[in-house]
Design a protein around this nucleic acid. Structure first.
Lengths: 302, 302
DNA sequence: CGTTCACTTTAGAAAAACTGGATGGCTATG
DNA sequence: CATAGCCATCCAGTTTTTCTAAAGTGAACG
């Protein structure tokens, strides 16, 4: 049905009918009068119906044309609303792709502050495990753990990741020296991108062999297991910030090892950087700074 | 708003969303898959929003895409309805352009028979005085008085026009010979395309000088004046058929003169001839034939 | 009578849309 | 585990549409 007709022609007809003249329509459509004239004529031909009567004063809809263009106007209004909705949504909602563990343990507790500062920006957190393709999804910004190399993305380092053991205070009490780790269980994330070896090296001791411990496929589960006192976990700053701050976890030995990885903010290289994205970046840097200050305070207290 | 976006792209998006795959949309739109893919992509770029998620199984609308395409569908449905309305109207209504006098005195009384035969065709009679441009208005067919030469139109002779005097029976009673016309008033149509001279010539008599009589700019008014008994009018068959049949008028002398003009059916040379037009033509020829048979009956009765 | 206004016509230029073939990811199947 | 089949994308070249500029028409106006 609709395939037989040129949409641009319909738009021209609608605009002419609404504004009552070719000149007006041409101005609204940003084309020449001639172009509109041709579009209207072609559409009339396709419909096999004259839509306008050519009077000296300009184009006047025929009886049928009036009914027809009223319908058209309704249709185009609907389309315009859809597009307007898109632009609005576009400006007002920010989609952040982030790993579930990071979302849950660090980002979510702080989100209310972002909302307080930018009340008109609706955040949508896409915490699906799968890494989103920034160019092809509606994700505006991703927070990822890695080495900063993402093809087709603009990456900015948020925070270099330092790893260190954490455990429940009850376990920490038994750890006088690094060697005591051999008496504890290791809580292992099977998907982790780093290992204990790096930490032992930084600490300057031979690797210790742990007791058998639980293995998980998700850092969030590891963390909860550690809080429950099941063993020692090799963790990093942002994930453990809140648990360390309120004492559910402690970091024995105070030795932190560079992992070579870090948290990065990644945005599409092709999409322009919008206001909402800049605002979010600024906000998250402040939050990270606050978290790190808290860390340093704990350090000096120790 | 809507000007910034390509309508064809929106249509592609809507179709893909509705059918769930590029291939389906391509089939419906009669273009290649590749074309649809490009349209969708371009639209997403223009909106600054991803509308679909690319999964191995095909395109799935994103959260926003679902809302957006629902809106689009509504809009396009409206447009499609408008176009459908056009096609329907196109098939079902026939616009006839005709002079007011002819419409009133001959065509209208017979229209109910056209409706009885073609119940699904709605006739619209455009009886504006101005002669419609068949190519540029929604007029399907015109009935015109003339010599058959209309540039840019296909003309078919309906009936050659013969002119003859008519008057009220009361006046006719006083007219024993053509010379008696000198005692009557002539009712004159100022816009008439013929004169009494031609009739006198056919009758083989010297032109008669009438009494002063009324002059009108409309044959319909002349006719009514004649019926009212104000004088003698030079009239022609179709206009007077009904008044002669029921005796409101009579045609004294029985002499009819060729006027060189006639009633013609004119259709656009560029528009194709549709069913409804053919039907109307057939019907009107039958009606003319019936009217002329009635005429002949009157003649032989006299 | 010449001017203005509103639209049309035309031809050529510019832009958009389309095609077809190559490509690449994923799934089901032998 | 290769292989075929599906789905979509990319690319380059071509076709089609759309646009512009400029000249033209024709009614109305002063």
């Amino acid at each position: 049905m609709l395939n037989r007709v040129h949409l641009n022609g319909l738009r021209a007809v609608e605009t002419v009918a609404r504004l009552g003249s070719l000149a007006g329509a041409a101005a609204e459509l940003n084309v020449s009068v001639s172009a509109v004239s041709q579009q209207v004529k072609r559409t009339e031909k396709q419909l096999g119906q004259a839509l306008f009567e050519r009077t000296p004063g300009g184009l006047v809809p025929t009886e049928f044309g009036a009914v027809f263009t009223a319908r058209l106007s309704a249709g185009f209004r609907e389309l315009a609303q859809a597009v307007a909705l898109a632009n609005e949504t576009n400006e007002c909602t920010l989609v952040v792709s982030v790993a579930p563990a990071f979302a849950s343990k660090w980002l979510l507790p702080r989100l209310s502050r972002h909302f307080a500062r930018h009340p008109n920006v609706l955040l949508r957190i896409d915490a699906s495990a799968r890494v989103a393709d920034l160019d092809r999804s509606d994700v505006d910004i991703a927070i990822r753990l890695g080495d900063g190399k993402w093809p087709g993305g603009r990456a900015e380092l948020l925070l270099a990741q330092e790893v260190f053991p954490v455990c429940a205070p009850s376990i920490a009490a038994r750890l006088k020296s690094i060697g005591d780790l051999a008496q504890t269980c290791a809580i292992t994330d099977e998907k982790a991108m780093f290992s204990w070896d790096g930490w032992f090296e930084t600490a300057g001791v031979e690797p210790v062999t742990f007791q058998k411990g639980a293995r998980f496929t998700d850092p969030m589960l590891c963390l909860e297991s550690a809080i429950a006192g099941h063993g020692v976990m090799l963790a990093w700053q942002l994930l453990t910030a809140d648990a360390l701050a309120d004492g559910r976890l402690v970091a024995p030995f105070g030795i932190r090892a560079e992992s070579g990885l870090g948290y990065w903010l990644v945005t599409s290289a092709t999409k322009g950087e919008s206001r909402k994205v800049r605002d979010f970046k600024a906000w998250i840097r402040e939050e990270i700074e606050a978290t790190m200050a808290q860390f340093r305070a704990l350090d000096s207290a120790a």
